[in-house]
Design a protein around this nucleic acid. Sequence first.
DNA 1: TGCCATAATATTAACGTTAATATACAGCCA
DNA 2: TGGCTGTATATTAACGTTAATATTATGGCA
Lengths: 333, 333
Amino acid sequence: MAGSLKELSELSGYSMNTVSRALRDEDDVKPETKAAIRNLAQQMGYTPNRVAKSLRLGKTNTIGVVSADSANPFFAEVIIGIEDAARSRNHHMLLVNTEEDPARELEAIEVLLGRQVDGLLLIPVCGERNNSEYLKTLSIPFELIGRWLPGLEEHSVLTDEYEKANEITSLFAKNGHRDILHLSGPTFVSGSLDRLRGYRDALEEAGIPFRDNLVVMTDGHAEDGYHKTYEAIQSELNFTAIFSFNDLVAVGALRALKECGYRVPKDVEVIGFDDLDYSRFLHLSLSSVRIPKQQLGRVAFEELYEHMRDKSKTYGRRTLESRIMFRETTLFD
Amino acid sequence: MAGSLKELSELSGYSMNTVSRALRDEDDVKPETKAAIRNLAQQMGYTPNRVAKSLRLGKTNTIGVVSADSANPFFAEVIIGIEDAARSRNHHMLLVNTEEDPARELEAIEVLLGRQVDGLLLIPVCGERNNSEYLKTLSIPFELIGRWLPGLEEHSVLTDEYEKANEITSLFAKNGHRDILHLSGPTFVSGSLDRLRGYRDALEEAGIPFRDNLVVMTDGHAEDGYHKTYEAIQSELNFTAIFSFNDLVAVGALRALKECGYRVPKDVEVIGFDDLDYSRFLHLSLSSVRIPKQQLGRVAFEELYEHMRDKSKTYGRRTLESRIMFRETTLFD
DNA sequence: TGCCATAATATTAACGTTAATATACAGCCA
DNA sequence: TGGCTGTATATTAACGTTAATATTATGGCA
């Protein structure tokens, strides 16, 4: 099926080099020769061996994508954006998952380096134990997506999470809410911090005292959003609005609110973050912050690509704009 | 950073071969020699070049994964299963998307072959124009996941979709429903046919005449589920139950029903398919068919792996069992 | 002592490319 | 006629591995 230049060379009578150049459509091969060789190649279904090419050229046209949590529809969409951009630049993607485990992340990077990827795109693990020091020693270009690591801020492609979290909370405050529950994300995610900070700062700006117990940490998934909200209600924590770390958690929260007899948005207003595809179609169309997920992936790839082309280019943070979508789980607009 | 055997050889004074054998922990290298070489390797941060290894061995330890639609959370989960299984077998995954386009699929396969993947896992495009004939000519092992192609049935890992569709429809019929709307999937997906067939056969078994207009085709996404259901209601199509192709479509349908003032499950019962993670947490917890998505990916990889190890092994269809989850959008259980 | 087996290491070639360099043969001009 | 230019092709080496084969030293045994 595959064949090789050598084989083509023997069959055609031309040297391997000429065959190679003919197939790559280089200049100094006579047109008739080219045609003959290409015909032959087609006839025997020759496919060039990209592994050999990679070895020879020291370039694989492959990037490594290390995702911390691709079960999350958010990152799934980011990855689609990456794939899309990579394809249009004739690159491919080796995808590895880490499940938020720094050791697995480290291993993933190492093995991808062994596979000679030309660059690395990471949704990095951000906890206490992270690989930022190791990342700093990397000799190939890399970008972090949707998260940042201390000391590597310039390597990130982010969105304006702080600003939007702040804006949302301010709006709640302006509309009279004083007890705003924040279902925060896991501490090991940098976005949790940004969103929490936005929330906290907005409270302060509004002159509302920050209360610890109104911040409830979740793992970022629906199940936990449900449980934590349920518990919050049971513990008679009073709140009239929920700012949720993401849509998944918000969906869980909505469910808990319903079970406990709260009407949304009348009794409790709810807003999510990320704006997943289906959030709009929920029983109550979910208000959320629309993050351009695919674009995040695309921009990250393009950024990486620039650095792969010019290794000396300096890194600079990119921040994409998101947009608050007011729907049925909130009153204001 | 990387270095090479040659470099290690020069620095250590041993031949490249000895260095290679030492690092691979082969038998006939003196323990002290091994230790010395490995120390040195560690010291200079040597990482073996897997591209060179692949070329030499004619084996990349890489599989190609061709997904028709990874925006779909269903396939996203399947891919997690693949990745998981692959990793535990020391394999990696080149992921390519086709967006249900047969031409892109063909191109993807060709380029993956050029990259010398050891096997191929596909969520294939199934329409009129599909690549089944081309697939038949492939010289590397491949498996199709969650879909089948005529003439390649033995290459598929599937679930009992027909049976479950039949069971669901029968249950609806048994519970007195005579006007059961089927929001079917796109015709280019083999699962649409299986689910439709299950629906149709169950009606026949129940002595209910099949009516064309009670089958409404959707593209498999929430948006379309919403629109098609909305239209169905507007066109005064009477129905008391909905059997939806998948959960996404069901979510859209639920939304439309709500907007039109129908109460679920009292006025209309609804059941989905796939059982996506969050379906359980909807305002009305969605009844659905739980397909073991990650397992689907894992089994597919394992099946592929067997064939990569033993090229002469004959192919055989695998069918995984799914399970109907009765929740709040249906009355029976 | 001489031979053989064994252990440890070295040499060589190959995987399929591509780049650098070399060769062969025109045609052209002085 | 001799040398020069340019076109078309060929040869060689290299990328970093590993497998097959070769070499060397060592010890045991008759």
